[in-house]
Simulated assay, not measured.
Amino acid sequence: MNTNTNISPGKPLLDTNLDTNFLKLIAIISMLIDHMGGVFFPEYPVFRWFGRLAFPIFCYCMTVGMLYTKNIRRYLGRLGLFAVISQPFWILAFNPQDILGNLTNWNIFFTLFISLLSVWGFKEKKWWLFILAFLVIALWNFDYSYTGIILMLIFYLCRRKPVLGACLYALTYLPALFMASPGDPLNLVLGGHNIGFEAGALFALPLIFLHTNTSLKIPKWFFYAFYPAHLGLIALLRYLLGF
């Protein structure tokens, strides 16, 4: 019997971690640390490393949501709505000096929206939608580009094969371990070897592929509202502190 409080009772649709409220909480804490560090403490890359947990966990939770939602259009609609709401806060938080120039630098909710739309098209064999969404996210200025689609495809296709999914997930981030650009201030340098900060996403692997059961209950709207709210807070702090 499925004892996880995040997912409806019955046979699970995935053999990976269904403790999604716990995962989302980890993700938003990681994201907050990443964004605060990037704006106020850019000289300390540890903030950005910790922040690499957020995106893959969000992608995973979106994949779980796609499989369990009773209405994919409403699900996508919520993502799209908060993407639009968050955009001005995103610009004010990270690029207040060039508002007009960043109107089409899309925030992460747009990336998640297009990525989910693409993978849903793949799931439903709507190949035109899958390809179109992939091209949109690859050619326009979206955070993380098509990485979200790749991750969601791994999570979806390996939903019953967690070992294979974990291996493919690890392979996605292996280049960061061996092919980091020298001189990047966000690199971790060990014995003269550069490790790209994207490698921090590997620490999300056990959270996604191993089971937890915290029984954590958090209203779903909290996770949606947190994104624009924390961006608004960062923008306000920037203004008050003169950053």
Rank of each mutant, 00 (worst) to 15 (best):
F89W: 13
P182S: 01
T212S: 13
L32E: 09
F94I: 09
T172R: 00
L18S: 12
T212M: 05
K125H: 09
L205K: 00
T214L: 03
F134T: 12
F22E: 01
I7P: 03
L233A: 15
L207D: 01
G101V: 13
I33E: 11
R48M: 11
W127S: 06
S115N: 01
I218Q: 03
L103G: 08
F223H: 08
L116E: 08
L207A: 06
A204K: 06
N17P: 08
P219S: 02
W120F: 04
I195H: 02
A166M: 03
F122Y: 12
A170Y: 00
V163W: 06
L76D: 06
G65L: 08
P162V: 02
I131E: 01
L13R: 15
F203M: 10
F134Q: 05
K217H: 10
M152Q: 15
R52P: 07
I33S: 13
F94R: 10
A176V: 00
L151F: 04
G121T: 03
A27W: 10
D34T: 09
L23V: 05
T104K: 10
L210V: 01
A204C: 09
L112S: 08
G148N: 12
G232Y: 07
A138Q: 01
Y156Q: 07
H211R: 13
P42S: 13
S8D: 12
L14D: 04
I72Q: 09
A180P: 03
P96T: 10
P228R: 12
S181P: 04
A166L: 02
N6R: 05
N194D: 08
P206C: 06
A27M: 14
F113V: 02
K126D: 08
S115T: 00
F178S: 00
Y224S: 08
H35C: 09
F40S: 15
L186W: 07
F203Q: 03
T63Q: 07
P206F: 06
G165H: 05
I234W: 11
H35Y: 13
A83Q: 07
F89K: 07
I137A: 02
K126E: 06
F109S: 01
L139I: 12
R73I: 11
M179Y: 01
I29A: 14
R160T: 12
A199W: 01
K70I: 13
G242Q: 08
L233V: 15
L231P: 11
I57Y: 00
I91R: 05
G80E: 09
I114C: 02
N213V: 04
G37H: 12
M1C: 03
L236D: 07
I150T: 13
H230W: 09
A201V: 00
N194M: 05
F223G: 06
W140Q: 08
F50H: 09
P162R: 03
L240Q: 15
L139T: 10
M1G: 14
A27F: 11
L157N: 15
V189C: 01
F243N: 10
